[in-house]
Amino acid sequence: MASSEASRYLSVAGRQVALDPEGYLVDLSDWSQDVAQALAAEEGMCLEAEHWEVIEVLRTFYQRFESAPPMRPLVKFIGQQLGADKGRSIYLMTLFPGSPAKRAARLAGLPKPANCL
């Protein structure tokens, strides 16, 4: 599923992965854990177990609802899947500073969430 034209490429494990102007995957099937780590490294992030837990929940959300969730539905879904202590905006902001819904979706290889600027 292509979201738009590639504006740049990320080199991952000897292959070129196309990214759109905002850094999201052009072809969602290009996603892998190596791609996620390369995207995170571009942002100066190192993905730890807590990040992977959220990334997997996001990918589950996308498989179920065919969209990447904006912040409120993301927080609610994380709470349902991982428990109330992790289903909080502040928790997600510590893991994915700035715009957690956008940043986590990008790292999970999903399209930009609707209603996120």
Rank of each mutant, 00 (worst) to 15 (best):
V35L: 08
K86I: 06
P113M: 11
A105L: 15
V54F: 00
G44F: 01
A6Q: 03
L58C: 07
N115A: 09
E43N: 10
S89F: 11
E48P: 03
P70N: 08
Y62F: 15
L25N: 06
E22K: 13
A18H: 01
S4P: 00
N115H: 15
W31M: 10
V12W: 01
R59N: 10
L28E: 09
S89C: 05
D27T: 13
V17F: 00
P111W: 12
R15H: 04
T94V: 15
Y24N: 07
G87S: 07
F65K: 13
Q81H: 04
P97S: 11
L39R: 06
R103T: 14
D27A: 14
G109D: 08
S99Q: 05
S3W: 05
P100V: 13
E48V: 10
A104V: 15
P100S: 12
P100E: 10
G98N: 14
A49P: 03
H51M: 02
M93N: 14
K112H: 14
H51W: 03
K112Q: 11
V75E: 08
P113K: 08
L110E: 02
D20S: 05
L107V: 15
A84Y: 00
E22W: 06
R15T: 06
L95C: 10
F96E: 10
S4I: 07
A40E: 06
G109Q: 08
A13N: 12
D30L: 06
V54S: 01
E50N: 06
Q37R: 13
P111N: 13
A114R: 15
T60E: 15
S89L: 09
S3R: 08
E22N: 09
G98I: 14
P21N: 12
P97E: 11
G87H: 09
A114S: 13
R8N: 05
Q33G: 15
L25A: 05
S7D: 10
P21G: 02
L82M: 03
L10Q: 01
A18C: 01
E53Q: 15
F61S: 06
P70A: 07
A38S: 15
A6P: 07
V12H: 02
